[in-house]
């Protein structure tokens, strides 16, 4: 027993070499706290959902649906490094051609959020070029010139958009750490061994392109951007990873296996939708197959679709999905 205590003490003594010296002292707690508060404000300001939210909420409380939806899809998901890493991994399986949705229980969402918050990492993300922040422009012509999209489509039944925003694209790479990825999969209740050994160190390159967002005073918002480009190793089997993803989203093993076989993971974006937030169904929009989301609390709808390499998101805080489908039918260059 004495020996054991002595060994522990020897190790503890050895670790004293790591103690910060006076030169390593951090800034004072007051200074550090001011920095934290500044960072909180900066992140709040920069969230796409919050930018839109301020605009939307100033007009009508019913527009909350738009805010929540956008925050869900863009703000929350990309705010945390772990989630961003997971998103890179997730995107690495796709070349976006169509959308599908899966309903996720609040309990499972809480588990996923907890995993993200506790800092488990499925690998290393390296952002080579940060996607630009949204900035306002005066016209669609200016938007077209600034971000290099030749034909920006707009809704012919509506007047000129009241606000137009653009953002540059970006790119990065994600290198899988199998141990971390398996730990996350396990923490979500899924089978970690679905992730094959060959995944360790796999590199996924992701490029997202510039986008344009048009907003009208009645709360309607249209976002369009070229499909992301994703390169991933040939020996990665997307169906097996899709099965792990489905399990991580709360699906039982048999269901996940069956559904994973029926999805083309090289071209389908799977959107996890909290079950207390929205219902969803497939629709024909703009002449192609798309996905419609309907707010559970009757606060609007949203459509996602891809046509000719361009991904579209159309939001309507007061519209039903079928009304949005009609509106999308008026899109013109």
């Amino acid at each position: 027993m004495m020996n054991q205590e002595k060994e522990i003490q020897n190790t503890i003594d050895q670790l004293t070499i790591l103690e910060p010296t006076p030169a390593d002292a951090p800034r004072t707690a007051v200074q550090a706290l001011a920095r934290v508060r500044q960072e909180i404000d900066r992140r709040e300001d920069n969230r796409l959902g919050n930018r839109l939210g301020r605009w939307v909420m100033a007009n009508n409380r019913k527009y909350a649906f738009s805010t929540v939806l956008i925050a869900l899809l863009f703000g929350v998901a990309l705010s945390f490094p772990t989630v961003r890493a997971a998103a890179s991994d997730f995107l690495g399986l796709f070349r976006v051609q169509k959308f599908a949705a899966i309903s996720v229980s609040p309990e499972q969402i809480a588990i996923l959020q907890q995993v993200a918050e506790e800092g488990l990492m499925p690998g290393e993300v390296e952002i080579l070029q940060e996607p630009g922040e949204l900035r306002p422009v005066d016209s669609l012509a200016q938007a077209s010139e600034e971000i290099g999209i030749a034909h920006i489509r707009t809704l012919a039944d509506l007047p000129e958009p009241d606000e137009i925003w653009v953002a540059e694209g970006g790119n990065g790479r994600f290198i899988v750490d199998l141990e971390g990825a398996r730990a996350i999969v396990q923490a979500t209740g899924a089978d970690p061994m679905l992730l094959p050994d060959s995944l360790d160190g796999a590199q996924v390159d992701v490029t997202v392109f510039a986008g344009v967002q048009q907003q009208w005073d009645n709360g309607i918002m249209l976002l369009q951007t070229a499909s992301p480009e994703v390169d991933y190793p040939d020996d990665v089997n997307p169906t097996v990873l899709g099965e792990a993803l489905l399990q991580a989203l709360g699906m039982n093993d048999d269901e996940a296996q069956r559904l994973a076989q029926n999805i083309d993971w090289t071209s389908t974006v799977l959107l996890p939708i909290p079950q207390d937030f929205a219902s969803f169904n497939e629709v024909t929009v703009d002449g192609v197959s798309g996905l419609a989301l309907n707010s559970i609390s009757n606060e609007g709808s949203a459509l996602f679709w891809q046509k000719e390499g361009i991904v579209y998101l159309l939001l309507g805080p007061n519209e039903s999905a079928s009304e949005l489908v009609d509106l999308a039918g008026t899109l013109r260059n």
Partner: peptide
């Protein structure tokens, strides 16, 4: 923050 700042920093350093 004030209660834990120094020790969290110490651990991370």
């Amino acid at each position: 923050f004030h209660q834990h700042y120094d020790r969290v920093y110490g651990l991370l350093f």
